[in-house]
Design a protein around this nucleic acid. Structure first.
Length: 476
RNA sequence: GGCGGCAUACCCAAGUGGUUAAGGGAGCGGUCUGCAAAACCGCGAUUCGGCGGUUCAAAUCCGCCUGCCGCCUCCA
């Protein structure tokens, strides 16, 4: 039975979607004003993993990840770079998808862009005005602003655990004097010259950020969705405001389960432009394989903070390589002739039988990926133990190894930490390795070592394996 | 100031009332090896930030303290 931690209640709850086996899931995607950083990437990987697990668990998941393509920052960059906002957005939308693809994050069923749902936003805002949850204030010659009246929605603050009075007191400098309450937020803002703008009952303008998600989620998934995800920083005000907008309008529960992922921290602090410690996902990918990044992301629970530092990622890299090598070694062993010396296979048999159970138990417990990974490592270790018993496993051992491989591929693939294809070895390197083996059997070690150095220069490492065999790996 | 989270071995990180406190990395010892590397085997927290309390039993629940972090403004 799947349990998830719901930010709304702060409790780990049994997951019961509104209309099983359907699961409607919405996750806040990027605002496309720049390259995403590894924190954004982690969030998408986490929710991608959750989505895939839900599907594996038998749910029919409708998954939506929005793209905010109209926003102050996009407009600012467009002005700075003398491009139009749409071009800027497109550039970074492409960059986003490129990174996602590399990371093995499957595309959502829908990736709505805010600018394509202006009509729905206007409709929602109009409804809120009619119901006296929003009010219109004069702004400039283009039109008026529309603000949400946070006091009109009694449960305001229920997600973030804040109460209005405290928020009032704690509120910082008020920028907009037309607000009735400091916690009111903009639903629609009048355009400024040179900015993207759309027609509305309040003149030309553009939507506020919070209304975008509300409108798109409602339009695409319905009034009540099962899971809404995002980073912890979105709890307030973004998700709080989404609730206020939708529930005031529909008078129905907007989201059944709120899931929030923790931050990646750099030297114990969040990434931020002001600290200058942003690490872009594309830069991380230039240095580490996608599987290594996934391994790193999933090595901590999605709700926890995840500390990054170079050594930690290097350790993840070594850990992943070790794990991944198991696959190659199993394949190699199976390709060889059957052996006939008896082998001890009991532990592997047991491990194969329990791996999926352990994996599911872990994932059913609020998507405990570190524990799920441990289950896979246990099986990988048993497989390696069997492999180490003989360079030529018996037919019986091979069939068990094949089973183990299948499990590892299936479950590891689900969370995206199993390898991509093996690295292809150039023919030249292959031939050199063969030559080296021959020289070795002739005891011409000096020459053999020279070849090893030569191959290393070509970017590959030769490792000897029992029984006069060898293995070629990419240089570490 | 308000709200929330975290503190587990050298590092990362599970575990939230009851067998020997997962797993990974690093380290050390051993086996193997022409050498190297890799691999495999073994070792590694009597202890879970500190102090009290509840309980037959706590890393796990409660209280206090200390430290770190996040949110309260755009932010994954």
């Amino acid at each position: 039975m799947l349990k998830v931690t719901n930010t709304l209640t702060g409790e780990k709850e049994t997951f019961q979607p509104l209309n099983p086996p359907q699961v409607k899931m919405y996750v806040c995607g990027p605002t496309v004003y720049g390259d995403i950083h590894i924190g954004n990437a982690r969030s998408q990987v986490n929710f991608d993993t959750i989505r895939k697990y839900l599907i594996y668990a038998g749910y029919q998941v409708e998954y939506v990840v929005n793209i905010t393509d109209v926003d102050d920052k996009i407009i600012k960059i467009a002005l700075d770079e003398k491009r139009n906002a749409k071009e800027v957005a497109e550039t970074y939308i492409n960059a986003f998808f490129e990174v996602m693809e590399k990371l093995g994050v499957q595309k959502a069923d829908l990736h709505p862009k805010a600018t394509e749902y202006i009509k729905e936003m206007v409709e929602l805002i109009s409804g809120l005005v009619e119901k006296n949850h929003a009010y219109v204030v004069p702004s400039n010659e283009f039109g008026k602003d529309v603000l949400y009246d946070s006091r009109s929605f009694q449960p305001y603050g229920k997600l973030s655990g804040k109460n209005l009075e405290e928020l009032m007191e704690g509120a910082r400098v008020e920028r907009n004097e037309s607000k009735r309450n400091p916690t009111d937020f903009v639903l629609w803002k009048a355009a400024k010259p040179g900015e993207p703008m759309w027609d509305s009952p309040w003149g030309k303008g553009r939507p506020g950020w919070h209304i975008e998600c509300s409108a798109m989620a409602r339009k695409l998934l319905g009034d009540t969705i099962d899971i809404h995800g995002g980073g912890v920083d979105l709890i307030f005000p973004h998700h709080e405001n989404e609730i206020a907008q939708c529930e005031a309008y529909t008078e129905k529960t907007y989201v059944r389960y709120w899931l929030h992922n923790g931050f990646i921290e750099i030297s114990g602090q969040k990434m931020s432009k002001s600290l200058g410690n942003i690490w872009k996902a594309k830069d991380a990918l230039a240095e580490f394989r996608p599987e290594v990044l996934r391994y790193f992301f999933l090595s901590a629970h999605y709700r926890s903070g995840l500390n990054y530092d170079r050594e930690i990622l290097e350790a993840a890299k070594r850990g992943w390589e070790e794990f991944n090598l198991t696959f190659q070694r199993i394949e190699d062993a199976m390709a060889g002739p059957d052996g006939n010396s008896p082998m001890d296979l009991l532990e592997l048999r047991l491990s194969i039988d329990e791996v999926e159970v352990k994996f599911k138990e872990a994932m059913d417990d609020d998507f405990n990926t570190p524990q799920a990974m441990a289950a896979l490592f246990d099986l990988a270790r048993e497989a390696r133990r069997v492999l180490s018993q003989s360079a030529q496993p018996t037919a019986g051992a091979k069939s068990l190894l094949a089973e183990a491989l299948e499990k590892l591929n299936k479950l590891g693939g689900l969370i995206g930490i199993t390898s991509a294809q093996r690295v292809s070895v150039p023919k030249e390197v292959e031939e050199l390795a063969q030559t080296r083996i021959r020289l070795k059997t002739e005891k011409k070690f000096k020459e053999a070592d020279e070849i090893r150095a030569q191959v290393l220069a070509l970017g590959f490492t030769i490792e000897d394996v029992k029984g006069g065999q060898y293995r070629i790996l990419p240089k570490k």
